[in-house]
Design a protein around this nucleic acid. Structure first.
Lengths: 198, 198
DNA sequence: GCAATCCTTTCAGTCACTGCAAACTTAATA
DNA sequence: TATTAAGTTTGCAGTGACTGAAAGGATTGC
């Protein structure tokens, strides 16, 4: 049952994210106050912090549900194939969610261009999440999580983000995120050979 | 010529970094004020911000000189070998600097354990720097910086940081950072194959 | 010694963020 | 429906990061 309460909360959250993205893409997040964002969304400044722990978080707006689904998918796939392709396939969940949400990602990138100090935050949204994913792989392989599992998770995360940035900064939908991720994983599987070499 | 002024500045900077590391490793950075750090270092609170833009920066304490040297080394090596080993060798500069500074890195890790929100900051200290390194490689290869160059720089950066974290959290010098980085780059060159597979 | 330059400090101000308690809205129960 | 319980929003007061400007002190070049 969908309660009116939950619906309203979702609406408020969306309004805050939209306001934050719009204003930050325009002026840069430094030149936008929480008060302004909240006013734009029709709530008080205090309420903003009922939804997001920091001002930055409204810009990044992670969905914890996606992470959980990704991890479940990975658990299923690991017994069936090597680690690298298993991660690749699990990422389809994020890819779909992001391609359906391209406009927001474009705004996000515009905001980051104006306020580069946000880049690290975007780049490593999932630092904590990655540790847990590494543990998942470690359990599967029966090895220490700090070795190969941490490496493969960190590296594929980086590859994914590079593709994401390229996709979100490319002119109007010229590239598919899925294709860019495929390309990156292919290069990874081939040992990052120089392009145009055997 | 080394001026007294520059010497004093370096001393103050070091004192601030040491104080920040010591206090943050003890209590977590959230429970340390800039006033305290500054007092510990014998300067006013305002002076802290003459050295570091944010409180976090005192903990991370990047040396811009190292980045410049690394980049110069990379420029020299690129014509002589493929990109991946060239990056690997250029990183020796960082590796040497960090192995000579292990105590601080251990404190850093202890601080990050107490305040995990710092992890993203550490993980992506070099977001901006990485972009420029990618451009270097793009010029060498004659390709678009957003493609392979961004990928290889992002990925090797991630691999390096995984090794760094493993090294700095390992019990008392049990592992050499250089060896861990070698291991990571070997795995990268082999396409991140599952450990214990052909 | 004098002047120019660079650093530090003080001060006042903005704004992110927090805990608390009151006001209000929605849901559950009788 | 009337009442109670639960969840949400809000104002308020407070801490502390960070900034700009101006004044005071130290260091350097002459």
């Amino acid at each position: 049952m969908v309660l009116r309460r939950d619906l309203k909360k979702q609406q408020t959250r969306d309004a805050l994210v939209d306001a934050a993205l719009r204003l930050a893409a325009e002026r840069g997040l430094d030149h936008v106050t929480v008060e302004e964002i909240s006013a734009e969304a029709g709530v008080s400044g205090r309420t903003f912090f009922n939804y997001f722990a920091t001002k930055d978080d409204a810009l990044l707006d992670e969905r914890p549900g996606d992470v959980a689904r990704m991890r479940r998918s990975l658990t299923e796939l690991l017994p069936k194939m090597p680690v690298l392709p298993a991660i690749h396939r699990s990422l389809l969940i994020f890819i779909a969610a992001m391609e359906a949400d391209r406009e927001r990602w474009v705004l996000r990138m515009r905001a980051i261009e104006k306020t580069p100090s946000l880049l690290p935050r975007l780049i490593n949204t999932g630092a904590q999440a990655e540790l847990e994913t590494a543990r998942l792989i470690a359990d599967h392989l029966g090895v220490d999580a700090a070795g190969y599992p941490a490496l493969v998770v960190g590296v594929t995360g980086a590859a994914f983000r590079v593709a994401l940035i390229r996709w979100a900064t490319a002119p109007d939908g010229a590239l598919s995120l899925g294709a860019l991720v495929d390309e990156a994983f292919t290069s990874l599987a081939q040992g990052l050979r120089d392009p145009g070499r055997p």
